[in-house]
Computed example of a mutant assay.
Amino acid sequence: MTFVYDGGTLDEVGTADIPLPPDELRRWAWCTEEQIRERTSELLARRVVAALRAKAEGTVFDR
């Protein structure tokens, strides 16, 4: 199961403070939907895009 949380809007100061747990995350980046599909597995891309659409539509998707 994957959970995606909306952390609100972040500015440069807020993004500078994002911790990178050394054993879990090496880096992060802002990405377009196309870049998400290029950088992640097909399964993860579908989940992230569904989360973005749910946010935009003010709803949830359970699959």
Results as ranks from 00 to 15, higher is better:
V4K: 01
D11I: 11
G14H: 11
F3T: 12
L25D: 02
V49T: 12
V49S: 04
V4C: 07
E34V: 15
T15F: 06
D17A: 12
D6Q: 00
Q35W: 01
V60P: 00
R39D: 09
A50N: 08
P22D: 03
C31K: 09
D23H: 10
R63D: 10
W30R: 13
D17K: 11
D62Q: 05
E34G: 15
T40E: 04
T15C: 11
V49W: 01
R26M: 11
A29W: 04
G14P: 11
I36T: 12
D23A: 14
R37P: 05
P19F: 12
E34K: 15
Y5A: 09
T59P: 00
F3Q: 04
D6R: 07
G8P: 06
T15L: 13
L44Q: 03
A54S: 10
L25H: 06
M1W: 05
G14Q: 10
T15A: 07
R63H: 00
R47E: 13
G7L: 10
R63Q: 03
R46N: 10
A45I: 11
V49L: 15
W28Q: 02
R47W: 11
G7D: 00
P21Y: 07
V60L: 11
A29I: 01
R26D: 10
Y5Q: 06
Q35M: 12
V48W: 03
T40N: 15
R47S: 02
L43P: 02
A50P: 00
L44W: 01
R27Q: 06
L44F: 08
A16P: 07
V49C: 07
R37Q: 12
A56C: 01
R27P: 01
I18K: 04
C31Q: 14
Y5E: 02
G58W: 05
W28I: 06
A29G: 13
L25V: 14
R37A: 08
G8E: 02
D11H: 01
E38H: 11
V48K: 02
L52M: 14
W30G: 02
V60Q: 08
R53G: 08
Y5N: 00
A50G: 07
R27Y: 12
W30P: 10
S41N: 03
L20Y: 00
P22E: 06
R37M: 09
K55M: 04
E42K: 07
T2A: 05
D6P: 00
F61K: 00
E42Y: 06
A29T: 15
P21K: 04
D11K: 05
G58M: 10
D11E: 07
R39S: 06
A29V: 06
